[in-house]
């Protein structure tokens, strides 16, 4: 795994919702090395720990990062302006989505789990997307995916309800080789169950509170079970993407 710690200039900043920010940062080395599913760990002035943020997509010399204000640190990060510098550690994660292994996939995103799937979309020959949000005001990036079905909990946009029915519809077509998902754990559980029902490989991106982001501190361990063997891999270094059938989602 090759990664860098670079001081990068923010190229642009816009808001997708009141609390979801969309930034491009000039980071040629990280952009050249990044793969779908990887993340960066960003230093925020005034906070001790870096903030792990998934890579939404890359250009030849820049990274696009879409993040939500979850606490004080990401709120402070949301105040970043074009021209500001950002200390970026990455790209991190030894295992991303297997866009090199599959030509096609159904991408399932829940809320702020949506951004990293854009990188998958760019790397696949064919994809469909099922994106779930609380309501219309929270919908982000829907226009950036192919064959997209938006779902909202309150029915204010697209399918009324969670991602299960639209996902099953795409699975039934049998024309996608894999499912890639990122979002809250209840959603991931449902995605894995459906993928198993249709016997389609499923990969999920996990998140956990992190310190180092590079595998040194063992702060972000998750649990996987294959056969009878339990393992405790690091989300940051051994993931953040895992085989959905092996990951223990509790």
């Amino acid at each position: 795994m090759e990664f860098f710690q670079e001081f990068c200039a923010v190229i642009s900043h816009s808001n997708l919702t009141e609390t979801i920010h969309d930034i491009w940062v000039h980071s040629p080395k990280a952009a050249a090395a990044a793969l779908p599913g990887q993340f960066v760990n960003i230093k925020v002035k005034g906070f001790f720990l870096r903030r792990p943020i998934s890579i939404c997509e890359v250009s030849s010399d820049a990274l696009r990062l879409v993040f939500e204000e979850r606490g004080e640190g990401t709120k402070a990060l949301g105040g970043i302006m074009p021209g500001d510098g950002l200390d970026v550690l990455g790209p991190l994660g030894n295992r991303g989505f297997s866009t090199d292994k599959y030509e096609s996939a159904i991408l399932v995103g829940g809320g702020i789990g949506t951004p990293p799937l854009k990188f998958c979309r760019n790397s696949l020959n064919k994809s469909a997307a099922v994106l779930g949000f609380r309501n219309e005001a929270q919908v982000i990036m829907a226009g950036e995916f192919a064959n997209v079905q938006v779902c909202t909990d309150d029915g204010s946009r697209g399918h009324h309800g969670n991602i299960k029915k639209p996902l099953e519809k795409f699975l039934k077509t049998g024309s996608y080789e894999a499912v890639f998902a990122c979002g809250p754990k209840p959603m991931l559980r449902a995605v894995v169950a459906l993928a198993e029902k249709y016997n389609v490989p499923v990969e999920i991106s996990l998140e956990e509170r992190m310190a180092c982001g590079v595998g040194a501190c063992l702060g972000c361990t998750c649990k996987t079970v294959v056969g009878n063997t339990a393992s405790y891999p690091r989300v940051c270094k051994d993931g953040p993407v895992f085989d959905g059938k092996a990951a223990v989602l509790c």
Partner: peptide
């Protein structure tokens, strides 16, 4: 050792807490 159950990291002003548990 498989260590302690997560979360294992919490941030504080000027520092952090860990409870890795010797994984």
């Amino acid at each position: 050792r498989s260590g302690n159950k997560p979360p294992r990291i919490a941030e504080t002003p000027s520092g952090m807490l860990n409870s890795v548990g010797l994984q």
